[in-house]
C-alpha cells in the first residue's frame, strides 16, 4: 500500500494473479494511491488485518483513504477517480478457487460504502498483471509476460 503526490514518482505492484490492485487518484491534490488486495474479507484473520489492512478488500478501502488524507486529500472518497486491475479468475463451479472474482466484488462493495465506484477496470481472465501508475500523467500501465503492455 502506498500513496504519493511527488512529481516524477510512480507506484507499482508486481504480478497480481488473483489479487486486485485498487488505485485512487485525487484530481484536487494530484495524489495517487495504490493497494494490493489479496483476499475479500478481513473476518478470515482479524489480527492480520490490523497489521496489514491492505491485504483485505473491506479494510483496504478505508486504509487507502487514510493514506491519502495524510497527503492532503479529504479522505471521504468524494471526487476520487477509482481504477481496479487484476483479479485473474480461476473457473471453479465449487465457488472456492474463484478468488479473483470474489476479490473484485468485495472491493466494489467496500467502495460503494463510500459512494465510490471504478471509473475504469481491467479485471478477470487468465492474466497475471503487473501495474504501475505515475503522478505526472495519472495513467495506469499494465504488463503481463507473453503479452504487449496496455494502458488504462
Amino acid at each position: 500500500m502506498g500513496a504519493t503526490r511527488t512529481p516524477g514518482q510512480e507506484l507499482r505492484t508486481l504480478a497480481l494473479g488473483s489479487c486486485v490492485a485498487l488505485i485512487m487518484l485525487d484530481p484536487k491534490t494530484r495524489c495517487i494511491a495504490m493497494v494490493h488486495v489479496v483476499l475479500p474479507e478481513s473476518s478470515i484473520d482479524p489480527a492480520r488485518s490490523l497489521k496489514k489492512p491492505g491485504h483485505f478488500a473491506d479494510t483496504a478501502v478505508p486504509a487507502l483513504l487514510e493514506e491519502m488524507k495524510k497527503l492532503g486529500s479529504e479522505g471521504t472518497g468524494k471526487g476520487m477517480i477509482v481504477k481496479l486491475m487484476g483479479g485473474a479468475n480461476v473457473m471453479d463451479p465449487n465457488n472456492t478457487f474463484n478468488i479473483g472474482k470474489r476479490n473484485a466484488l468485495a472491493l466494489k462493495k467496500a467502495l460503494w460504502k463510500y459512494g465510490m465506484g471504478p471509473r475504469a477496470e481491467d479485471l478477470g481472465g487468465r492474466i497475471s498483471r503487473s501495474v504501475s501508475v505515475d503522478v505526472d500523467s495519472g495513467k495506469v500501465k499494465i504488463t503481463s509476460p507473453g503479452r504487449d503492455g496496455w494502458e488504462l
Binding site: 508486481l14 497480481l16 479473483g100
Partner: peptide, 28 residues
C-alpha cells in the same frame, strides 16, 4: 499462480480440474 508467483507467460493458462472436490475437501 493465483498469488502471482508463476513462471512467466504460462501463469494461470491452465485448467483447474473441477473434480478436485472428490479428493480435497477444502472450503472457500
Amino acid at each position: 499462480m493465483m498469488g502471482g508467483t508463476g513462471t512467466g507467460a504460462d501463469t494461470l493458462l491452465y485448467n483447474l480440474d473441477h473434480d478436485y472436490k472428490k479428493f480435497i475437501n477444502v472450503s472457500a
